[in-house]
Amino acid sequence: MKHLFAPAMAIARKDLYAEWKTKQTITTMLIFSGLVIVTFSFAFDPSNQAVSALVPGMIWVITIFSGILGLNRSFTQEKQNDHLHGLMVAPVDPSAIYLGKCLANLIFVLLVQIISVPLLFLLFDFQVISGVGLIYFVMIVFLGTFGFIAVGTLLAALATHSKSSEMLLPILLFPLVTPVVIAAVQATRIVLVDQEGVSAALSWMQLMAAYDVIFFVVGFLLFEHVLEV
């Protein structure tokens, strides 16, 4: 345990601090999600009332596309000076690297969502929910993003072994995250648009929670096999 949490925290803090200094990843992710929103406005006429039904899907398209950018960076930046070797020769559990990276990536994506989702609501003139619905919404976003990051971090580490990891990662990742995408979009739609079948939203959230737990544990256990040189 001693070689798990403390190094994981150190790695996560290192990533966040490096990001604070360069601001490269977050900026890119934000600009990219802004561009996706603009593209949506061309694809679906924002003045049309029916378009509000598409907003839940848009939230997750933004999350996944900008998330992929962050995930790609997460491990390719560690390859520049063989940083991963530096982490591996240290007395650090390989799973600590997974844990730390997951945490950092999760924070990046959540930060992007905090800015881009309200922007989406604003630009598409979406009726903002309040009260209990908002709490549900936040929980759904968190659960969905966590599942996406748990799988994404493992696969990003896997893909970095390839010379063209940026191309490989989406192909590996998208089929695997389908359950969480379906569940997240459905639950978000129920909470934001229908506002009636809260129980259905709850069962979707249970599905996401189960997915999160399974893939977090699997990633935690398998990470050392992905890491070795």
């Binding site: 290192k14 601090y17 490096a18 200094k21 360069t22 520049q80 000076n81 063989d82 940083h83 530096g86």
Partner: peptide, 8 residues
């Protein structure tokens, strides 16, 4: 390689 982080 140095294992050092360039931004730091």
């Amino acid at each position: 390689q140095s294992f050092l982080y360039e931004a730091f």
